[in-house]
């Protein structure tokens, strides 16, 4: 391709400035390629520096000020961070609520998705229909789903408690009882594990059959095949899922904002999640400096957990053809 082009170039180009031309193209080829490359990604670069990194650094700075968006921006040192740890009870409430949610939702949704994927990986007639059915909830999104669940979870007329009543269980008041609000959200989350299920299903189908056959010949049972072949083979996906869903779970906000009365995080602050408390501080009380400080602390917490996850991951994640290190 290149040679033909060189040949096709009009000879006059060589005749006029042969040395200079070749020198310039030699020097500039790389720079021009680089430039072209940067130009291609420039929309993204502008977006990243202007809309992500810029505001990020600004919020880091704002977290050391009493910034209130419209009138104040005085440097206050670590005051915001001190307030968080010593004066703001709701900070601890919201952090505890969020950790509770993360601690339950991540293992539950991961295990749920794997289990579902295993079931849907069977070679049975009509399996595609089931896969579609179980995947469907995850394409419905956001507020519509929350409203649907608010009806399903309605204490006396909701479907969930009606079904529980059939088997003689008196269902709790779900979103109205502080003890049951978070389990109610977890139940809702479990309903849409279809998204994760799809990932696992794809990776399960990538596990070679020879391994199962060989294991079966050696007398491995169902559990052993699951434990020593299936799980290790899909462990990179589990790892990926755990990390992303941990980060996602820390971001929980909409559920509480939509499903509690006037977005308060009630009853009794049982759904006051970290981000909701942060949002309230930023947009209800205009304490943007404090909200920024909260955001950075959350960033640090999530960062630490992710690093721990990455470290631990080396012990149990198996990459086919790769070293464990």
């Amino acid at each position: 391709m290149k040679t033909t082009e060189t040949i096709r170039q009009p000879e006059s180009a060589y005749l006029h400035e042969p040395a200079a031309a070749s020198k310039r193209s030699k020097l500039s080829k790389k720079t021009r390629d680089t430039l072209t490359g940067y130009l291609f990604i420039s929309p993204w670069l502008v977006g990243f520096f202007g809309l992500t990194l810029g505001p990020l650094l600004f919020s880091l700075f704002a977290s050391f000020t009493d910034y209130n968006i419209t009138s104040k921006m005085n440097f206050v040192g670590f005051q915001n961070y001190r307030t968080m740890f010593t004066l703001d009870d709701l900070f601890w409430t919201s952090l505890a609520n969020t950790l509770y949610y993360v601690a339950f939702s991540v293992p539950l949704t991961t295990a749920g998705a794997i289990l579902l994927a295993l079931l849907l990986n069977q070679k049975l007639k009509g399996m595609k229909v089931f896969r579609t059915i179980y995947y469907l909830p995850s394409i419905l999104s956001g507020v519509a789903v929350y409203f649907l669940w608010m009806q399903l979870l309605s204490p006396s007329t909701g479907l969930v408690n009606t079904v529980l009543a059939w088997v003689g269980i008196e269902g709790p008041a779900w979103l109205f009882d502080p003890e049951w609000t978070k389990p109610a959200l977890l139940l809702m989350k479990m309903w849409s594990v279809g998204g994760g299920m799809l990932l696992y299903l794809a990776s399960l189908q990538g596990v070679s059959k020879e391994m199962y056959e060989a294991a079966e010949l050696d007398g491995a049972g169902l559990w052993q095949r699951l434990r020593y072949i299936t799980l290790p083979m899909i462990s990179p996906i589990i790892f990926f899922d755990v990390i992303t869903s941990t980060i996602g779970a820390f971001q929980i906000f909409q559920e509480a904002y939509v499903m509690t009365e006037s977005g308060s995080g009630g009853p009794a602050n049982s759904l006051l999640f970290y981000n909701l408390h942060m949002w309230n501080n930023a947009f209800k009380v205009f304490d943007m400096g404090y909200a920024s400080a909260m955001a950075w602390l959350l960033f640090i917490i999530v960062m630490i957990l992710t690093v721990i996850n990455l470290k631990l991951g080396k012990r149990w994640v198996y990459y086919e053809g790769g070293d464990r290190k």
Partner: peptide, 19 residues
């Protein structure tokens, strides 16, 4: 006290729940 409702409401919730 820009945010005083956020401190009173949860307590009232708990009172009405008998906690």
């Amino acid at each position: 006290y820009p945010d005083y409702h956020s401190r009173i409401n949860p307590v009232v919730d708990n009172i009405l729940l008998g906690k």
